[in-house]
Amino acid sequence: MSDFLQSYGFLIVTLIQAGLLGLSLYFPLMAGQLSLASPGFYALGGYVAAIMLTNPAFAGLRDTLGNGIFPLTWLAAGLLCALAGVIVGVPALRLRGIYLALATIAFVEILRVVSLNLSITGGAIGIFGIPQAFGFQDRWQYLLIFGPLLALVLAFTYMLQKSRVGRAFRAIREDELAADAMGVPPTQYKVLAFVIGAVIAGIVGSMSAPFLNTWNAKQGTFDASIAILAFVLIGGSRSMWGPVVGGALLTAVPELLRFLQDWRLVINGLVLVIASLYLPQGIVGALAKLRKSPPPARPPIAPAPDAKGGTL
């Protein structure tokens, strides 16, 4: 068992991390909002933890609290990301669809460039020598904090979906105007969904900084945004299990493809294309369909959706 954890512990933690980031994007999507901001909040949370754990300004706090500093970094990262989520979310959520997605990409990019240039974030080099959480000796021990976080977030998601708030999210996703007319204030709920996602991503970041030992501007990039979107869409965007399954699988695929050596990343790209073509409902959606009897065939949808912005 310990051999297994020795060899695969790191990978398993990475899979859980991916699942959690997928869930952080799933929340805004639950309310029908396509936000790609998760890597930004993930990076922000990581920086909060990295700074609190290495910066001389916090030396006194670290000495007094001992290992208690780690839960405090999670709390600080969560709170700061909630604040940032409100600041970014309130104006950005007036936008919809692709516009919101692009605004959140802008947020991630601005954050990246700023963190590349500030001295407190270590500039281009980043922050080094972040101490291991709770003096963990081995990477697999991070399962002890990431595992419970995943369980907690899943339980929270499950309960939220059954609650009034979850129903409000769904109502907004199906039809924002109708939801508004029925007395569900869309803006508040959209910001709430966005902030929940931000907090989850931030906490994951704050746990990941000690896990990775170092933190730099490469942690929150545009590529990560799309990778996380792929977790959710390929896993299945209509069920809370989708992001978890998608995150774990898509993170495992490059590892499983290691035997392909140099061709690995090429094939990884192909996997994304093929999965989008053949699993349009996501893996969880496809499994759910298998269990139910197939619905009557729908006529093919016209080549282009009506909701687009342009004239030539």
Binding site: G269, S276, L277, P280, P300
Partner: peptide, 19 residues
């Protein structure tokens, strides 16, 4: 032609870019 979610085009085109 399969009537997939237009959002998936983002993922699939990113896959093409990776390739």
């Amino acid at each position: 032609s399969r009537g997939a979610d237009p959002l998936l085009a983002l993922v699939s085109s990113l896959g093409v870019a990776l390739v």
